[in-house]
Design a binder for these strands. Structure first.
Lengths: 213, 213
DNA sequence: AGCTTTCGCTACGGCTCGTAGCGTAACTGG
DNA sequence: CCAGTTACGCTACGAGCCGTAGCGAAAGCT
């Protein structure tokens, strides 16, 4: 996962405790739930994890990196169930992503580290590698399946196909995040259905008929 | 604007300096550019603005509230130019919103305060009132114009119409924010064109033909 | 005038930061 | 078994920021 700060890793010497690692990440998530992003302190996390504060600083450069690793583990749960239709696939991934964003630890952490990454390029790359790309795969496989079913045309131009995939990704992830965290309204089956209708058929499709289409 | 913390406002007494207010908000934006969200301190803002630190604390409850007010002013610039077609309207507002998110002060501030708002309900309400609703108006007027032109059907059910408007809003704002801040790739005319194509015609429309459609 | 509120300034205790130093623990290779 | 190497827990430290209190002076209103 390349999460921790890699030391020169010469052979020999006492190995880093794996239990400490998991304890720290779990303690970080719990601290996020209890305190939120700003009030979370590394000293508090160390106490919760039962390790010394110095141990934390030996493995992570700072608060942002630690939190990214802590929430990145949660994004491993994301999967794309093969529902048999593109619409069902989209609804499924939307609801799954929404459930993840519903957890208090991801809620407060995700936006905060992204905010931090706007003035910290290495951090942004870390987020991309351990969180964002994991979601992007869902879009790629989902589209491949839809194309195999004949639900979507195969774009001949590779550059155009990549741009479309990026677009779809930003639209889906962005819309769910905005609905869940900015508008702070529920991402339920009803919303997922309307959203999918919009993505597949466009504005006229979603506003032309009722939600029970 | 109801931005500052309203004192009991009895008659009489020395009025609050309006110059200090604008100086503080301007200093806050500049500090955001120079330091980013986390490294911004209220003491530093006070020094930049040429006011005492205590003056700041008399008007704002904390860092989050101050920053919200500082960036909210920038969102007043948003306007919906009547371009004559729904597609052009969408592209216009997307590019306008993207330009706003391109500024370093909004970049780092917007996500940070939203992150904070997930554990601070009054702050979320403040953001909604002074920032989010301002964008939502653009969606409502844009749709009204499109309906007047006959480009969009008029939804008879009021609840359904409101749900659609919320959906459109979350999709547009969310996609632009995600593209600009998470993917960190340019929101240019090319992207705006493809995005508009997707919103209006759905997935098959954007992947069916090339970007020069 | 007298009253009221804000202002700038100084000072303070409390908290967090990130690091340094030390002795000990764990694991590796000769 | 014994050096060598690295991680660990612990303590302590200067530095910086927080948010508030207290003061005298300034700027309005009646």
């Amino acid at each position: 996962m390349q999460s921790r700060s890699t030391p020169p890793t010469r052979a020999g010497g006492r190995p880093r405790s794996a239990e400490a690692d998991t304890a720290i990440l779990e303690a970080t998530r719990q601290a996020l739930v209890d305190l939120g992003w700003t009030k979370l302190t590394l000293g508090d996390v160390a106490t919760r994890a039962g390790v010394a504060k110095t141990t934390l600083y030996r493995r992570w450069a700072g608060k942002s990196e630690l939190v990214v690793d802590a929430v990145a583990e949660l994004f491993d749960e994301l999967e794309l169930p093969d529902s048999g239709s593109l619409a069902a696939d989209i609804e499924g991934v939307v609801l799954q992503f929404a459930a993840l964003l519903g957890r208090p630890e991801t809620k407060t952490a995700l936006m905060a580290v992204v905010a931090e990454s706007t003035t910290d390029e290495p951090l942004r790359e870390r987020i991309r590698a351990s969180i964002v790309d994991r979601q992007k795969r869902l879009v790629l496989t989902g589209r491949a399946r839809a194309q195999a079913r004949g639900e979507l045309p195969v774009e001949p131009d590779a550059a155009s196909a990549a741009a479309t995939a990026d677009l779809i990704f930003d639209v889906i992830a962005g819309a769910v995040v905005h609905r869940a965290l900015v508008s702070a309204e529920p991402v339920d089956g009803e919303w997922a259905r309307r959203f999918t209708l919009l993505i597949l058929g466009g504005l006229s499709a979603v506003s032309g008929r009722g939600p029970d289409g």
